[in-house]
Design a protein around this nucleic acid. Sequence first.
DNA 1: AATCGCAATCAAACCGCTTTGGATCATCGG
DNA 2: CCGATGATCCAAAGCGGTTTGATTGCGATT
Lengths: 345, 345
Amino acid sequence: MNLKELAQKLGLSPTTVSRALNGYPEVNEATRERVQAAAKRHHYRPNTRAIRLATGRAMAVGHVIPLATRHEIVNPIFADFIAGAGEVYARAGYDIVLSVVSDEDEERTYRDLQARGTVDGVILHSMRLDDPRIPLLNETGLPFVAHGRSTGAPGPYSWVDVNNRRAFRRATDFLLDLGHRRIALVNGLEYMDFAIRRRSGYVEAIEARGITVDPALMFSDEMSETRGFRAAQAMLALPDAPTAFVVSSIISAFGVRRAVEERGLRVGRDVSIIIHDDDLSYMKNGDDVPIFTATRSSVREAGRRAAAMVLDLIADPTLPPRESLLEAELIIGQSTGPAPDRKVP
Amino acid sequence: MNLKELAQKLGLSPTTVSRALNGYPEVNEATRERVQAAAKRHHYRPNTRAIRLATGRAMAVGHVIPLATRHEIVNPIFADFIAGAGEVYARAGYDIVLSVVSDEDEERTYRDLQARGTVDGVILHSMRLDDPRIPLLNETGLPFVAHGRSTGAPGPYSWVDVNNRRAFRRATDFLLDLGHRRIALVNGLEYMDFAIRRRSGYVEAIEARGITVDPALMFSDEMSETRGFRAAQAMLALPDAPTAFVVSSIISAFGVRRAVEERGLRVGRDVSIIIHDDDLSYMKNGDDVPIFTATRSSVREAGRRAAAMVLDLIADPTLPPRESLLEAELIIGQSTGPAPDRKVP
DNA sequence: AATCGCAATCAAACCGCTTTGGATCATCGG
DNA sequence: CCGATGATCCAAAGCGGTTTGATTGCGATT
């Protein structure tokens, strides 16, 4: 059942039927009701492909999932981010178009997405330092919002991000206040922008206390259980082992915990662990009692904000770039406690 | 730059240009090259919206992510499944259209997707028992492939699945062979089809040895660290505590391990753990040495197969339903060992 | 009575491509 | 020399909506 057939059945022109269904004022209320009733009765659903061609809008937002060819990892926060964004898109009648792209042909993908009119805007994931996608998209004029920022990227752009620096500053301060002096950082890969910011928050806190940061206590790699385990294992074997860990991901933290326990130490008593928690639905930091003390910020909420932002930009592309900085909350769990050697007064 | 403009520039008709670019034979080779050169020079990209309307195909496959309203969990395997499927779609020029849908309005979503022509086919995720989506999609005629099966669903349908029953039968047998007699099952929610099959493999193995299954050793819930921890904690406190665990997910297994270690027991020596490993990129079961002994089956590979299947069905919808059963491989790690009480000879 | 304004409806153009059904012209066999 | 055959190319009709620019009645205004 298409528009023309429905119009015929009603003895009306396609024009009127279209207008009746789309809420235009120039149609008699009685007629509108008649049309709506008939549409429902015949299960009329306007063809999206036709609407898109006629209106020149794709009614879709692109999400490009960069698949780092180096380590073939899909960002685990992606699913929850999309869940958040999806809520917003659904309300606005927008679809999500996903492209999984190995990072080499990202540029072509974005160019195609725009030139072929597949999407009206895009969300950038996994922001890196000096991310080349920002100038690229600014040049093409396709509306976009970055999830995360990119240190060094030229010019303004819209983004949604957690205040990673402040979160890690707080986390580290929290440990320092507990008397810890040897604090390790188990971070993500440092070509990722968030990792840099986290490190700077960590360094800032340490140096503010007049302590010299020890490169031996800073680790940066994929955030997997095994890498977390190995890093912590090595650090705990040092003559001057850390008494606390600041960890970028709950997954690596599981590995850190394993290393701690393997040495016969107890988390929260002998060694403290504080993590950053993206509040992923399938990777909850405990249900009621948190497993780890954490700086928490919902990635799903970030998805909602980014989606709302990109829809605004699509509606009015002349809008100036917008920014949204989420503050993480500090959740106290049982993985942290006073430094073992010198107790807090 | 659109077709008409490009044709004009070349002094040709749109017809010829279209044919030249799409490889039709009725165009002079010299002309074709001229056209292709011009298309490249002017960065001509055919408008997808127009192609879709003209051809009547959406060139897209729908993936509906059911968001269980009860516990708001996004399936963590989703990202890797999509990464696999994406490879196949990209080669075929298909897009992925994602819908995040709370399970109540799933039906409307599928109906819409088809009637509005947004997609040419769909992949079903998170298969449940008696899944209503199967009769629904069979009725509408929209090509689809299920990731997982649905016990009790009427009629044939195409699917890709791991042999969950056999994997868990093998895992349990492996533990039995090591002398374990009190073996616990930490399973996923049992309205999910995979969980039922896993349990039946587990039960089958136990009963085949003439052992009575103990309901106190069977647990079924969300597969989170905390739930795994609690379940294992409770079981280990039993007078006749299990010496081994079969766990449905690496995430819950981290919790099980924590419970074991918390009791001062050692994994692989005092208590054995064997898991099912979906080989998720961000949740690797160790890099070289596996953390857990596991039945492993790549969810990314499942994605590739499902995608190839749905594209075949789209190309020829009269094709009979196809089935693809993946066998899990048994990976021996260090989390399993002989039963502590009675050693294997 | 002629004119005007307004509400309601419609015909047709258009979005940018594909595809059907010719048209044109050179070549070939008889 | 002529119709048949191919090789090329083109005009125009879709695809299924939206949107522009009329058209039609009819009561109100002058």
